[in-house]
């Protein structure tokens, strides 16, 4: 029972972003981070899995092929949190979460949608924002609201596209520890993160994408190495352990530029 990505190719028009990318199986209970330089295809892979971008190859969840599923059936299994949420709508946070629950047309039978939406806001610590309009939210608050929309259906697979990009330090910790708790409930979590120290601290495994393919995959300590950082990101870096044993990534400089300076 897992998410499997096999020989997936996708792109925009003629530009191919991912070519025949395969990932080892992603298991329930685990948080996997997708990392890599800009334009490596991280968001594109998330969108392909979420059914938002066409692809060739095979993506299966718990043995079921995702490609032939309609949008509503897919939304019951997958929660997707995009990079940004528009601010122009005259809707409050609670309304957006209820909409996330009701839009596919499937009605919750057990409890009223508004009760369930409110419980999710409470769980994320943003219940006080329930009746705040989207246009009154800060970037970080909007990101938390977006996470609430992604998890309210209790999806088996949660896809997060740079969920911490607008969050302050405390909220990064709150969001990622909540993501860990969600995974611990037996869900599969795949998230894009740019901050490798954050990724090392909060994920079970890291997939490094580079030039449309998988460069490395494994536990953080095996994947995040000076050699990988030099090859994939073009930086000279040290990877050390802090007094508590967590990985620290210290970037010293850009390789090509320092080489040019010599």
């Amino acid at each position: 029972m897992s998410l499997s990505v096999t020989r997936v190719s996708t792109g925009y028009g003629r530009r191919q972003v991912l070519s025949a990318l395969s990932l080892p199986a992603l298991n329930p209970g685990e948080v996997t981070t997708l990392a890599g330089p800009n334009a490596a295809g991280k968001s594109t892979l998330l969108k392909a899995i979420a059914g938002l971008a066409p692809f060739s190859g095979a993506i299966t969840l718990d043995g079921q092929d995702l490609a032939p599923l309609g949008p509503a059936a897919r939304a019951q299994k997958i929660g997707f949190m995009p990079q940004s949420l528009p601010s122009g709508a005259s809707l409050n946070v609670l309304e957006t979460v209820i909409t996330a629950l009701r839009a596919s047309g499937e009605r919750a039978v057990t409890e009223p949608p508004e009760t369930r939406a409110m419980a999710v806001l409470d769980r994320l610590g943003i219940d006080h924002l329930a009746l705040a309009g989207l246009d009154q939210l800060s970037g970080g608050q909007r990101q938390m609201a977006s996470l609430a929309q992604a998890i309210v259906r209790g999806p088996r697979l949660l896809l997060l596209d740079e969920p911490t990009s607008a969050l302050d330090l405390a909220r990064q910790v709150r969001l990622l520890s909540e993501v860990r708790r969600i995974a611990a409930e037996g869900r599969i979590v795949l998230t894009v993160l740019h901050d490798l120290a954050l990724a090392a601290r909060w994920s079970d495994r890291i997939a490094i994408l580079h030039r449309g393919g998988l460069f490395a995959f494994g536990p953080p300590a095996e994947v995040i190495t000076p050699a990988m950082l030099a090859e994939v990101y073009g930086v000279s870096a040290r990877v050390e352990r802090c007094s508590q044993g967590h990985l620290m990534v210290q970037i010293d400089g850009e390789l090509s530029r320092s080489a040019a300076g010599k």
């Binding site: 059936a73 997707f80 957006t96």
Partner: peptide, 17 residues
């Protein structure tokens, strides 16, 4: 329609065709 006010990507993620 309400879902679409949150953007096309979000609406599709909610299961809207």
């Amino acid at each position: 329609l309400t879902a679409l006010r949150l953007g096309e990507e979000q609406a599709r993620g909610f299961g809207v065709d």
